[in-house]
Design a protein around this nucleic acid. Sequence first.
DNA 1: TTCATTATCTGACTTTAGTCAGATAAATCT
DNA 2: AGATTTATCTGACTAAAGTCAGATAATGAA
Lengths: 292, 292
Amino acid sequence: MNEISQVRRFNRIVTQRNGALEDSFLARGRPLGEARVIHEIGTSGGVDLKGLRSKLGLDSGYMSRLLRSLENQGLIAVSADPGDSRARMIHLTVKGEAEFAAYDALSDRMAAELLDALDAPQRARLVTAMGEVERLLKTAALEIALEPAASEDALWCVRQYVGELNTRFEAGFDPAAGNTVEIGDMVPPAGFFVIARLDGEPVGCGGLKRLDGTTGEIKRVWAAPAVRGVGVATRIMDELERLARQAGLTRVVLDTNSSLTEARAMYRKRGYHEIERYNDNPYAQHWFEKEL
Amino acid sequence: MNEISQVRRFNRIVTQRNGALEDSFLARGRPLGEARVIHEIGTSGGVDLKGLRSKLGLDSGYMSRLLRSLENQGLIAVSADPGDSRARMIHLTVKGEAEFAAYDALSDRMAAELLDALDAPQRARLVTAMGEVERLLKTAALEIALEPAASEDALWCVRQYVGELNTRFEAGFDPAAGNTVEIGDMVPPAGFFVIARLDGEPVGCGGLKRLDGTTGEIKRVWAAPAVRGVGVATRIMDELERLARQAGLTRVVLDTNSSLTEARAMYRKRGYHEIERYNDNPYAQHWFEKEL
DNA sequence: TTCATTATCTGACTTTAGTCAGATAAATCT
DNA sequence: AGATTTATCTGACTAAAGTCAGATAATGAA
């Protein structure tokens, strides 16, 4: 099919370019493995060895040797984890930070060189198209799955959600006052909680709480700022509605604050229509329902 | 700058994806070096060792060993070049073809998997955006340079040009009858010939012939079909006009056939306007000029 | 307290990728 | 015909990347 050949052509040409880029990383005179470790530590800014190892997918022996080498070069410092003295924390030294900054500057320069070869309208088109490809690749890589509402990741997502409401609502958001759902409400079969992940990292969530035999309420739909435009909220709503239908519900409702105008537009687009106030949530100004 | 960070974000996410792709190539149980050689031979379908070596940029000793290994696996057959018995020709055996097809199918499957994760409108947007990125990356990588009009590559380009006119003109194109320029006319300082290259491969050409003390004529502007939409013709015209100005000319003219409508539109857009017939080229129906 | 588990490290290994200095034979130049 | 160049091959090497089997010490569970 023609779409497939466009994807393959794209992969080919981009691989060529990135190959050149990786070579120039090597050209900084350091083995690629070491450079990758420096880059990873630098971007996360101090990490635990175990997490680093799983992120880069390296053997423990190999990793140990890489770290020893970087330590001898004075680029990193390894210290014991305060909570668990088997585990190690790693961070860049001043020299390591400088090295990381040099890689960073190199990446910047390569990007600038590419852009310099184009005129302003072409640059604008390239950046727009790259953004579109990036968003759609993320969309394709998105994974939505049921998650225990009490899990570490679920709680993290809800904290992000609460934090964001707090900055967006004019009067702030007090989770105690505005809380209309408990963790237990979103545990199957009573309700559900789902998480959206990108390469394993949580980037969005949403919950469904059963109100009665036929009605479910959608709660806590959140998408991380880094994935705006990727369709995370849409995919989460899809999944929650599917789960609601599967559980025999025929109707879902939700409430929302007037400051969340994009959310309201999305609900309408998905076939929700506004109804009378059905709860006493002090932060809600709009109530919606949808027949499934 | 914001454009730079978009380019870097793009590079990062695409590298991740392609990294996974390369790993799966490795996962076919063959070292990447061997896989690259099979791929290269397969796509070009029978090659000479020297060309292969320069294309992949490998050391002669290393290459020799790679070939010996592939030969022992029964994937390739090496024969003497009929014209030069020092040189070697390489082609895939039946088993090698099967292996190549397997890599090909794998690439297809990975592209299909990506597309499958999207709905039809998203797929269309992805493919469009990938095409745009691809074209603009090519635009950025384009190199235009003076070339001896009698060089191997220059002659190759002109042959492509002639072949294309022959298929596009209703009555065909006879280079003998339609020839209004000789190689010698395009040798500096009398005239110029330029070639556009993408990663070293010629993908377009154009010539300038001095008619008198103030006027130059633009000839043989051609862009390979693979780079349509990349702006090769535009860049070649830019360069030819620059060279004309540099040589002290104040006016350029050119002629063209009525079947080349896009070319005519481009000339107008570049500030050319139509004038009276100035030569007796039997294939020309339109004549243009531009003050520099 | 004992035992299994976990996080990291060390030593001994292999494969991959690549370099470099000749060797060899055919082709080309003088 | 002899000298030089070219295309490929062989041998001897190195560095990078990675694997695997224990060793060690701290942690957590019974």
